[in-house]
Simulated scan of single mutants.
Amino acid sequence: MHLAGYRALGLDFTYIPFSVTDVEGATRGMRALGIRGLGVSMPYKQAVIPLLDEIDPVAARIGAVNTIVNDEGRLKGYNTDWIGAVRALEEVAQLGGARVLLLGAGGAARAVAFGLAERGASVTVANRDLDKARQLAAAIGGAAAPLDREAFSADHDVLVNATSRGMADVDPRSPVPEEALREDLLVMDIVYKPMLTELVEAARRRGATAVHGGRMLLHQAAEQFRLYTGREPPLAAMDEALRGQLG
């Protein structure tokens, strides 16, 4: 996606994956080599924070950084996962005042939860470990519920799956009973491998509006593009590249 964006705008940038085992050494190398930006994946999204000079306020509240920008040797950390989630949803709905059922309380769910709260949504966190759901709910001023059929029967406008259920290499089954999916419901699955998960396909069969995980992936990368380059990302070119990768 990033390379497609750079080519579309004629920018002299490249985007290269590094296999890192020494995160402190990687940040020193970023300064020494003048690398403009780095994307950070697990398991380093928390470990990198004390190594940076500044943290974006939302990233600090989430407690995870997935993007680092180097401004003349000063490293600032951001989290674009939450931006990806809310922009994917905002393509089809307004989030202010929306009642959202968020499935999961792990790292990905945490970023989504803070993003929803930033946009003024009312969030209920449903998780198999109720204590973790309560902790996340308390952090965003939301509610907590066990991840069971009763949670799905509650009145909500938006349902977001931020668990690993649906991933082809973990458990491809939908985390939501199909009969719980209503026609007036907005459903987003942050899983993007496969892009059309069982949850997304079930939601569409039921007449609900469904957003696949590729949209979140696109928008979080687009925000990284803005931070790295200072330019507006060419979404069409980046989306085409993403679809080519994911199928």
Rank of each mutant, 00 (worst) to 15 (best):
G214V: 00
Y228F: 15
L33Q: 02
P17G: 11
L116Q: 02
V112C: 08
A113N: 06
G10I: 11
G141D: 12
R205G: 02
V58I: 12
I83V: 14
L218V: 01
H2L: 12
F13D: 11
A26N: 10
L136H: 08
A203W: 00
L218S: 08
S153A: 13
A237S: 06
A59S: 03
N66C: 05
R206F: 02
R182T: 05
K76R: 15
R204Q: 11
H156M: 04
R205D: 03
A60E: 13
M167N: 07
E240M: 07
A32W: 01
N127D: 02
A88K: 01
I190P: 08
V69H: 01
L147W: 03
D189A: 05
V112K: 13
Y15P: 02
E178S: 10
G115M: 04
G29F: 01
L116S: 08
D148N: 12
L11W: 06
L3R: 15
G63L: 02
R231S: 12
N70M: 06
K76G: 14
D171P: 09
A109G: 04
M1D: 14
Y78D: 10
H212C: 12
P172R: 02
A143L: 10
G247P: 08
E183P: 04
R149A: 15
G84D: 10
L89W: 05
A113K: 01
T209D: 09
G39Q: 07
R165A: 15
G25C: 01
L218P: 05
A113S: 05
D155R: 09
A151N: 00
I55Q: 10
A241Y: 06
G141V: 07
G115S: 06
V92H: 04
G142T: 05
G5I: 04
A236G: 12
M238I: 06
A143I: 04
I55H: 08
V58K: 13
D56P: 02
V158C: 00
L52N: 01
V20H: 08
V40L: 00
G244I: 07
V191L: 09
T229I: 06
A105K: 00
M167W: 13
A221V: 00
L75H: 03
A60S: 11
T80A: 11
G115P: 04
L9Q: 15
T27Y: 09
T27G: 06
L102K: 07
M195P: 14
A105Q: 01
R74T: 12
R74E: 10
